[in-house]
Computed example of a mutant assay.
Amino acid sequence: MTTLYFDDFSVGQTFESGGRTLTEADLTFFSMLSGDWNPIHADAEYAAGTRYGKRIVHGVLGMAVCTGMLHEMGIFHGSAIAMFGFEQWKFTAPLFVGDTVHLRLTITDLSVGKSGHSGKIGRRFELINQKGEVVQDGMSALLVQTRAGAAAAGG
């Protein structure tokens, strides 16, 4: 997909990423990177005795996968200025090794800045597994250049 600017978005517009299967390596590397070796993630025998019956993938890894899938879409490549953060993020179902997930991104709000060179875009992230279940859901606003702002910046 090509770069989009503030002017190219409308409230209610949706985008879908391709799928990605979560692997054993993903879980292990994220445990190493984060230092989170909680037995629900790292100990198969312990996890077998939990309500899930097996190890679960770190919830925060799901958030990271969402941002990677967003980058893969390419819609903000070269137009994004700053992400404001994550809000109201919910882990609605567990993630497991072997799950294939994709991102559905919905534009929820548009607010152009005073200069007209940028605008704030409200975005809803839904991480969806292979069963069609939303396993994570949250909001993240982004400051994005307008086409006029990009032209003024020499882009």
Results as ranks from 00 to 15, higher is better:
Met32Trp: 01
Tyr5Ala: 06
Arg20Gly: 06
Gly122Val: 04
Gly154Pro: 13
Glu87Asp: 15
Val135Thr: 10
His117Tyr: 13
Met63Glu: 01
Asp8Val: 09
Ile107Met: 07
Gly35Met: 06
Thr50Arg: 12
Ala148Phe: 00
Ala82Ser: 15
Asp137Met: 10
Phe9Lys: 10
Tyr52Leu: 12
Gln145Trp: 10
Leu103Ala: 10
Trp37Leu: 05
Tyr46Asp: 01
Ala80Arg: 02
Phe84Glu: 13
Lys120Tyr: 02
Phe9Asp: 08
Gly74Thr: 08
Ala151Trp: 00
Lys54Ser: 05
Asp109Cys: 00
Ala150Glu: 04
Ala93Ile: 02
Val11Leu: 04
Glu45His: 10
Arg147Asn: 09
His102Cys: 10
Ser31Ile: 02
Val135Ile: 05
Ser118His: 13
Gly85Gln: 12
Gly74Gln: 05
Gly62Asn: 10
Glu16Met: 09
Asn38Gly: 04
Thr28Pro: 02
Ser140Met: 11
Leu127Tyr: 07
Gly116Ser: 12
Thr2Met: 13
Ile75Ala: 05
Asp26Glu: 10
Asp43His: 13
Glu24Ile: 09
Met69Pro: 02
Val60Lys: 00
Thr67Ser: 14
Ala150Lys: 14
Ala148Ser: 11
Ser118Asp: 13
Phe6Ile: 08
His58Trp: 02
Leu22Val: 15
Glu72Ala: 15
Val135Gly: 00
